[in-house]
Amino acid sequence: MYKKNNTLLIYSIIYFAFLYIPVMLLPIFSFNDAIHMVFPLKGFTFKWYDQMIHSSRLHKALMNSIKVGLVASIFSTFIALLAAKAFTRYKVKFHQLSYGAILLPFVIPEIIIAVALIVLWTGMGLQLGLIPVTIAHILFCTPFCLLILISRMEGFDKNLEEAAMDLGENAWGTFWRVTFPLVLPAVIASLLLSFVISFDEFILAFFLSSSDQTLPMYMWGQMRFPKKLPHVLALGAVIIVVTSLIVIISYWLRNIGNPSSKKNNIGGI
């Protein structure tokens, strides 16, 4: 009955092109020997990459982004791991309410969270900077991590944990000897994906970081100046390639060793 549908196939391919062409343009033009992004292409060059490597402000922004990303991904994955265990293993009173509250930062417009945090932070007389950015990123990444980890925890048999308890392990030993090894691929996937989210996040950083620039803010600043543009393209190309690799690895991690790997384990993301 559902053998072939060429119309839909052609449509899908066109849509596929629509999705990818804008993303592919940046790497293409990053090798183009011209300042403006216009056709026809002028010639092949590595000079924008060279310029990128030698920008010290870029280095500083990169380090800031990595710092924020590491802290945010570790904290949000840890927080989400505990919450995922609670949601999948216990009957929680007000389950829906707490689940909804934890997922809410995922849907609320980021700008609202950003300005609300500005009000709170400045209201407490504190300096804006990387700390409020990191807190906001933890808040924003936790829902993603939770969805990833819950889909993994649901995929494995609750009896395994009970079996460990039955064989004499306490809650802590059960977690480290059984639960953790079994969810480890998802934990790594969660770390990688939340790092990517934090690394790419712009709005929260833009509002909350004041003078400490993250990488997206650096790019934002450079985009206005046509002369600076090509090396932003080079940077963008590198970011696109690296994040794509990380994402592919984490998709793969989420599927290996999963007892329910026949199901498409994408858990809402």
Binding site: D157, N159, L160, E162, A163, P181, G257
Partner: peptide
């Protein structure tokens, strides 16, 4: 256990 719960890892 009913499904044996052999640790897969």
């Amino acid at each position: 256990f009913q499904n044996y719960a052999i640790f897969p890892h």
